[in-house]
Simulated scan of single mutants.
Amino acid sequence: MIKVSIQGMPGSFSHIAAEHFFPDLQLICNTDFKSTFASLAQEVADFAVVPIENSTIGSIIENYTWLTNYPFHVIGEVFIKVNFHLAAIKESLLSEITEVYSHAAGLGQIVNFLAEHPNLKIVEYFDTAGAAQMVAETKKRIFAAACSRKAAQINGLKIIKENIHDNPKNFTRFFLLSKTPLKSKQQDSSPGSASQYRTSLQFEISHRSGSLSEFLTLFANQGLSLTKIESRPIPSTDWEYRFYIDVLSNPESMAMKLCLEEAKSKCSHLRVLGQYPIGAQIES
Rank of each mutant, 00 (worst) to 15 (best):
L176G: 09
T227G: 12
G58Y: 06
R149E: 15
F174I: 13
E43M: 02
T180K: 14
F72N: 06
I60T: 04
G274M: 06
S95R: 10
T68F: 02
L224R: 10
S190A: 15
S92D: 09
L258K: 14
N221P: 05
P277M: 04
E116T: 07
F126A: 14
A280G: 01
M1I: 06
Y197F: 15
Q26P: 01
E99M: 02
S102V: 03
A255H: 13
F37G: 12
P118T: 00
G76F: 09
H20S: 10
V123P: 03
F47W: 09
T172P: 01
P71R: 03
P10E: 08
Y197G: 06
C147I: 02
F13E: 07
S236W: 00
Q186W: 00
P235S: 11
G274Y: 08
Q7W: 07
Y101V: 05
N119G: 15
D24M: 03
L218P: 04
M256R: 01
E62I: 09
M1C: 09
T65D: 10
S12G: 15
F37T: 11
G11S: 09
N167I: 03
I142L: 07
P235Q: 09
G274V: 08
P118Y: 01
G156Q: 02
S213K: 03
A136G: 07
M254P: 00
E99C: 03
Q153I: 01
K257V: 02
K185S: 14
V78Y: 07
F37H: 10
S231D: 12
L258C: 10
D24F: 02
N54H: 11
F22Q: 02
G274I: 06
L107A: 11
I52Y: 04
N30S: 13
C147K: 04
Q7V: 10
T227F: 05
D32F: 02
G210N: 15
L177H: 02
S184T: 13
I234D: 09
C267G: 04
G76W: 06
P235E: 12
L226I: 07
L25N: 02
I122N: 06
I229D: 02
V82W: 00
K81L: 14
S35P: 01
A104Q: 09
A194C: 10
R208G: 07
I245P: 04
C29H: 08
S249E: 05
F22I: 05
F72W: 04
L67Q: 11
T98V: 11
F171D: 07
N163E: 15
H269N: 13
